[in-house]
Nucleic acid binder design. Structure first.
Lengths: 191, 191
DNA sequence: CGACTGTGAATGAATGTTCATTCCTTGCCA
DNA sequence: TGGCAAGGAATGAACATTCATTCACAGTCG
């Protein structure tokens, strides 16, 4: 079976190589080889390496956001909605460890830091479920009255640390363990 | 005033450059220039770049551990000891943002992952205050009954996320805010 | 005291490698 | 045959590391 979709092949190869070896361990030539394409061809589809990386991140973020929204019900109680989002996030990252590794690298690089800065300064993006959930929780005095970034740190800091431990093989996660941990995150943010 | 201590100068320059620009943004030539030394000289003091980086990490870890131990009283209640360690860690990292950035980079690199793996597999290092504190808490049923790495994730995930936000300028920390957040971490790990 | 010499620290140009990116060539299909 | 996608060798920049050479100085001897 042939793949005529070289753009997709290139992105997939880059994703896997970068996830496993980091940005600097994934030279364009290696990406090309893994994608079954020649080095020059990549530049027919992406302006340069940076553009390729940014495109990849955009795509992954889109996927994650989509999977968080499925089954999310605005009318449920806050705690339930929080646990839904957190566990959907965990499930996604568990199912896609490669995406997780890529995103981690991305957000620790200058690319990701700039992106985040732009988002904080830019107008509050309406479709940010997390932000609106937390703002609602503070207003209703269900959550601790802390600045948003700190609530995010309390909620997602542990989740990402847990996923890191799992991906590197320091722990083996199962549903019970995950559920307990996510509830512990809730204990951290709730009043 | 002359500095005859070139080894120290080199480490300082490398620390600052790596913290600010990452491992790959800190070529040896740049480190040499910042240290007021020629490129070749670095190799009189360090076998290669990797050795320099590992030495740096060892030194910083030593500093941190020392500063955590001062004022730590084994006879105090568990909660108090936890808060002491957590806030000493925060204070250290706040006072030394450059060390924080370096350590983050290090632990996200293959060097750090291997180091951590060795430590988990190796014999439980007796002088690991965190590990013994948490083990005691589980035994006394004060802490949640979760595998150690998960308790670490719950306790330190938020702290590191908070420091990151602070260093990048996404929040401005003060004592009250920090105290509240650390107590929230405790809420996360306690039963 | 002053010339001589041995030593090891320091230098920085040179080396060899690894990249991202370019661009000329090839060959396919309409 | 014309146009365009794909290939891959070529280019040049950026690196880590090496090494022949310089230099400062302490010790020695006349």
């Amino acid at each position: 079976m042939k793949t005529p979709d070289k753009r997709h092949d290139i992105m997939k190869a880059a994703l896997e190589l970068i996830a496993e070896r980091g940005f600097h361990g994934a030279p364009m030539a290696m990406i090309a080889e893994k994608a079954g394409v020649s080095a020059g061809t990549i530049y027919r589809y992406f302006e340069n390496k940076e553009a390729l990386i940014n495109d990849l991140n955009r795509e992954l973020e889109g996927n994650i956001m989509k999977s968080l929204q499925t089954g999310y019900l605005r009318e449920k109680p806050l705690r339930e909605r929080f646990l839904h989002l957190a566990s959907a996030l965990c499930k996604y990252l568990l199912d896609h460890p490669v995406h997780f590794r890529f995103i981690e690298q991305y957000y620790n690089s200058p690319y990701g830091v700039n992106l985040r800065r732009e988002r904080l300064l830019g107008k509050p993006n309406g479709d940010d479920i997390f932000r609106s959930l937390f703002e609602e929780g503070i207003k209703q005095q269900i959550l601790k009255d802390l600045p948003l970034p700190l609530l995010f740190a309390l909620a997602f800091g542990p989740i990402l640390a847990m996923m890191r431990d799992h991906v590197f093989g320091f722990i083996v996660l199962n549903d019970t363990l995950m559920k307990k941990t996510l509830e512990a995150c809730w204990d951290g943010v709730k009043r």
